[in-house]
């Protein structure tokens, strides 16, 4: 695992090598506000660790591994910017620096959560592309935490994450009745003979057809089926007492 400062270097080299050329020590120094001498020293160390290939007078380029780490950091940075702006409502001149500090601190798991929360964004607030996730199965990742409302058990609750639908009329119907991301829902009941689901939302109760309930994606209140596990435990408990 490279140090925080090494990550900063890799990020800077990543930015400077966007057009395919090598990053000159002087340019790196200017970008990071450091003296060229200390930059040369650090770049040499990075080269010996296998993150960059360095040629004197020509400059540094990222190796495969260096590229992977740089992209990861860049991704965390831009996702964090999205999060700061979209979710926390940060101002334009604030979010950049904060993201710079946070990017080294957050775990991969949190990165994934932010990605899910901000709905897998493609660009950062400044319009630069967010590098893609390393996990190949993005769709799976997006869905692992949310399931269609339809799949909740009776009595189970969850929070709406997004609406999986392209049809504007259906989307409008759903949002106008209050099925919007961020709200909590409880599946109360399933009506007989393929009838609607009864959904409780705050103070309202809505009968929602299955076709609609398939479009509303929710995150279970107790992810990973804790409910079921509790039930099983209770079952064992009774057996033991008998």
């Amino acid at each position: 695992m490279p140090s925080e400062i090494a990550e900063e270097y890799l990020e800077a080299i990543f930015d400077l090598t966007q057009e395919g050329q090598a990053a000159k020590t002087n340019d790196i120094a200017a970008k990071m506000n450091l003296s060229p001498a200390s930059v040369t020293e650090m770049v040499q160390r990075l080269a010996s660790d296998g993150y960059v290939s360095y040629e004197r007078y020509k400059g540094a380029t990222l190796t495969g591994e260096g590229m992977r780490i740089a992209k990861k950091i860049k991704r965390k940075h831009r996702l964090l910017e999205r999060f700061l702006v979209d979710v926390l409502g940060a101002k334009k001149d604030e979010f950049h620096e904060e993201a710079c500090r946070l990017e080294h601190a957050i775990s991969d798991e949190s990165e994934k959560r932010i990605c899910q929360l901000t709905n897998n964004p493609k660009y950062c607030p400044d319009g630069d592309p967010i590098p893609e996730c390393e996990d190949e199965d993005c769709a799976h990742c997006m869905n692992q935490s949310s399931v269609p409302l339809q799949e909740l058990c009776e009595g189970e609750g969850g929070e709406i994450t997004h609406l999986k639908c392209e049809d504007a009329v259906r989307i409008r119907r759903l949002i106008s009745m209050g099925f919007v991301p961020g709200r909590n829902v409880i599946l109360e009941e399933r009506a007989p003979m393929g009838g609607p689901l009864l959904i409780k939302m705050e103070e309202c109760r809505v009968a929602l057809a299955k076709e609609y309930a398939d479009l509303v994606m929710v995150q279970r209140e107790h992810p990973g089926g804790t409910r079921r596990r509790t039930r099983a435990r209770r079952g064992r408990g009774t057996k033991a007492s008998v």
Binding site: T118, N119, H162, L163, A168, I171, R172, I175, P181
Partner: peptide
């Protein structure tokens, strides 16, 4: 950008 319709 957001993978979500603006009206939503």
């Amino acid at each position: 950008d957001h993978g979500e319709d603006i009206e939503v």
